[in-house]
Design a protein around this nucleic acid. Structure first.
Lengths: 156, 156
DNA sequence: TAATAATAATTTCATTTGAAACCATTTCAA
DNA sequence: TTGAAATGGTTTCAAATGAAATTATTATTA
């Protein structure tokens, strides 16, 4: 993409502020902490718990394994998030009678209310963040993130 | 940006895959793990250590506080990263004679070689990731990330 | 100038995290 | 079948992390 002297062993023109993976990490972190700082008074939830809830809010029931596949959480994170959410009374687990290794997870009515409430705040927050972009820019970002995501997945 | 029913308490149309902060977090994580998986055989460094090195690679000397201001690391992360890097022999610290609370940090010659080496891999990796984008898309992404970054900073 | 506040950096301690080991169950293959 | 491998999920243990307290120094201000 950019020309640079590949074979000069004495210097390297990497500048952190201009380095894409760093920029992505910083913005993701700003968004995550920005949201949780704004709304931390309203709830107390880890990122893993929130992703489990959001998955179930969208589709129920799902097993931990299914949620993991859709939320970029590993099985340990899922297991712990599920345990905490169950203790809070926000999700229920029921053994799958067909495959008894699996747990089928659903939101409780209370968990659904929590999901709706946080979900709305999250969508408001997203609106707030993306208010800095024009409609065209938003669409371009969507397309670009799709490509980057696909590409980054293939590099794992 | 998008229309949705604000006042319906029974549902929330949040879908994780389409939620910008989530998408940013996933891509940032894919990039970070993708890079470290690819090159983990060549070095052993935390994200904090790498950011400290990258800062010094660009500008020397700097105090921990200055590096923190430029790299979104807090003072504890800096302190620990600096301690580890010093033990590895990659950076040197010298007390500032004007303000004796400050440490002035520089890369050692060995540290500079390490920085150059990793820096080149990082730039190659960035090229690889962004190869999925056209020149126009890359420019658009740059502009959009600038805006998002500014906006997200203001929401902290 | 003495007292107080602010700053740079470190340490402490409790919590979170990740990798690997582990358990129970199911699938595969000889 | 039956033994080996794979799978869903949990536990363990060491390392990483974050918040708050601590130390040492500098800046402020009364």
């Amino acid at each position: 993409m950019l020309l640079r002297d590949e074979d000069d062993d004495d210097k390297c023109d990497l500048i952190l502020d201009q380095y894409l993976p760093y920029r992505m990490a910083v913005i993701a972190h700003l968004m995550s902490t920005g949201f949780s700082k704004r709304y931390s008074k309203d709830f107390d939830m880890t990122i893993g718990e929130w992703r489990v809830m959001a998955n179930l809010g969208h589709l129920e029931p799902q097993s931990g394994h299914e949620i993991g596949a859709h939320s970029h959480l590993d099985k340990v994170q899922i297991s712990r998030a599920v345990a905490r959410l169950e203790k809070k009374g926000w999700i229920q687990r029921e053994g799958d009678t067909v495959d008894r290794r699996r747990n089928l997870l659903t939101l409780t009515p209370e968990g659904r209310r929590v999901f709706n409430s946080i979900g709305k705040m999250a969508l408001d927050f997203e609106d707030d963040v993306s208010a800095s972009l024009s409609t065209e820019e938003y669409a371009a970002l969507d397309r670009i993130l799709r490509k980057l995501s696909k590409r980054a997945e293939s590099l794992i």
